[in-house]
Simulated assay, not measured.
Amino acid sequence: MLVEIWSDIACPWCYVGRARFAAALAAFEHRDEVTVMWRSFELDPDAPAEREGSHAELIARKYGRTLEEVAAMDAALTATAAADGLTIRFAEMRSGNTFDGHRLIHLAAAHGKQDAMKERLFRAYFGEGALISDHATLQTLAVEVGLPADEVRELLLTERYGEEVRDDERTAQSAGISAVPCFVIDRKYGASGAQPPETLLEFLQHGWAQREPAPAPTA
């Protein structure tokens, strides 16, 4: 069974959603027969390499909230993430373009390390104040998870996997995916949002139950 997950590195609910999906998958009886593919989605494809201003200032300006309202929302989300074993430090976050990070995740998929790369980028962005548009930072993080340093350098110097990122985004658009995280089973069943692990487990069980039976063996 194939589970594709559209998400953005700079999306806190995608970070929470990854942790919750991992918990659901670990409890799923047929987990060894599930292939998980991370798909690219940019919440702001026109974002600069780095935005000026703090996270709170950027969110307040974008959504017309006061700094006090943003602080309250951030505190609630930080507590939610902590309950799932995640650390989010909004005050240290450096907002910027995620396109090259998505290209790196595609390279990691070719080496069987896609989930590890995705998790490392999430952790760096939300917990370590890393600027994930910075090529030196991406190089370091990729080597940490075991990607070949020379391939990472080549990717960052070229447009490699750029079309694959855009193809993921076009697929999301054609499927009507406008909010992330979005989980899709076998291109048939979808679930949006950072649902609780129990809900995501039910989603996996439903997808498995709806699979077409294997053809009967012929004599």
Rank of each mutant, 00 (worst) to 15 (best):
L121F: 04
C182G: 13
I5V: 12
A172T: 00
Q195I: 08
Q173W: 15
H111E: 04
E29W: 06
R51I: 08
W208P: 08
D46C: 08
A124E: 00
T80K: 08
G17K: 00
S7Q: 06
A194M: 11
R170G: 07
E119Y: 09
A149T: 07
E151Q: 10
L131D: 01
E159I: 04
T218N: 10
V16F: 00
H135K: 12
T171F: 09
W6E: 06
A79M: 02
E29M: 05
E57G: 14
C14N: 00
F28C: 02
K113V: 03
A172N: 05
A71M: 09
R89W: 04
I88M: 14
A49H: 13
R51Y: 15
F90Q: 01
P148T: 04
R211T: 12
E163D: 13
A214E: 14
C11P: 01
T171V: 14
Y189C: 04
I132S: 04
P148G: 09
T98M: 01
A191I: 09
G85V: 01
A47T: 07
T199Q: 14
P217D: 11
R103S: 02
S133W: 08
G127A: 01
T158N: 06
L86C: 03
G101V: 03
Q114I: 04
E29D: 15
Y63V: 11
M1D: 08
M1P: 13
R211M: 11
T218W: 12
E4A: 12
R89D: 15
Y189M: 10
A26H: 01
A49Y: 09
F183L: 11
V36N: 03
I132R: 02
R166V: 07
I59P: 02
D74A: 11
A108S: 05
E52R: 11
F41R: 09
E202T: 06
V3A: 07
R61E: 14
E69V: 13
G207H: 02
G64K: 14
E144A: 06
P197V: 04
C14R: 03
T35V: 07
H102E: 05
A83D: 13
S178L: 09
I59T: 09
R211I: 11
A24S: 01
I5N: 02
L201D: 06
G176L: 05
E163A: 13
L2D: 15
Y63W: 15
T218H: 12
P213D: 10
R51S: 12
A26L: 01
L86I: 05
I59M: 15
G176Q: 03
S133M: 06
I105D: 01
H106G: 02
A83V: 00
E169Q: 14
D150V: 05
I132N: 04
D44M: 15
A142E: 02
S178T: 15
G64D: 08
A175R: 15
A23M: 03
